[in-house]
Nucleic acid binder design. Structure first.
Length: 208
DNA sequence: TGCCAGGCCCTCTTTAGGGCCTT
């Protein structure tokens, strides 16, 4: 099964924009091989300043917890090795990609891995969902959260299960058994009304 | 006191605007 080799990650951060000085405060990720989670990564990281009450309330991550955590640079060095060479995915990938870029840039590194967005793909695979927030999709699909929502590993695991559910939906609806990473990535970028024709064509090509 | 970004997507669009999402 070439369809499930990737790392799905989630950052908790001090805010929305690394350009305004926001930093990562937690990273969680699941490594997927052959349709199964084979390894996880989770760590808090100290950004070097106190985060707002809003962020502490939103994530449950307190300044006391961050004061005991290793600095961002140490954690990101380890995480860089964890993801090395793997295709990546995240829910709202543009957000996590920006923080990944910003934190790796501080180490003089860059990530070149392909990056898929589970939110953009979910909008096309589950168009009838009430909305496409991760929490809503977790409820809509009956996914069991392993921990608290808005903690990095629990959200990464939820996004991983969402990835599996999307694969299952595509297999069932379009009889498409082989679903490579690239197809999932492309699916998030095509016009919504072109999705059925796109997947039908993919199934036809693979049946040849 | 109250707000901050950014990219995608849809449409009553394209000479634009606003909602969705992420923390």
């Amino acid at each position: 099964m070439e369809n499930c080799n990737l790392v799905i990650l989630d950052f908790e951060t001090s805010g929305l924009s690394p350009a305004l000085g926001d930093r990562a405060i937690e990273i969680g990720a699941v490594k997927i091989r052959n349709g199964q989670v084979i390894e996880t990564f989770q760590s808090l990281m100290d950004p070097g300043f106190k985060v707002s009450h809003f962020i502490q309330d939103y994530t449950g991550i307190t300044n006391q917890m961050l004061a005991k955590a290793p600095p961002c640079e140490v954690v990101m060095e380890q995480f860089s090795k964890f993801i090395s060479g793997q295709p990546l995915a995240a829910h709202k990938a543009s957000f996590d990609s920006r923080f990944l870029d910003a934190e790796l840039n501080r180490l003089g590194r860059a990530h070149t891995e392909r990056f898929a967005c589970t939110m953009l793909t979910a909008r096309r695979v589950f168009p009838a969902a009430p909305d496409h927030k991760l929490g809503t999709l977790v409820d809509y699909l009956g996914i069991n959260l392993s921990g608290h929502a808005h903690r990095a590993l629990a959200d990464a695991e939820a996004a991983g299960e969402l990835w599996f559910r999307m694969l299952a939906e595509i297999r069932t609806t379009f009889r498409l058994q082989s679903i490579p990473f690239d197809l999932m990535q492309r699916l998030g970028r095509i016009p919504k009304n072109a999705v059925p024709a796109f997947l039908a064509e993919q199934a036809k090509q693979r049946a040849r």
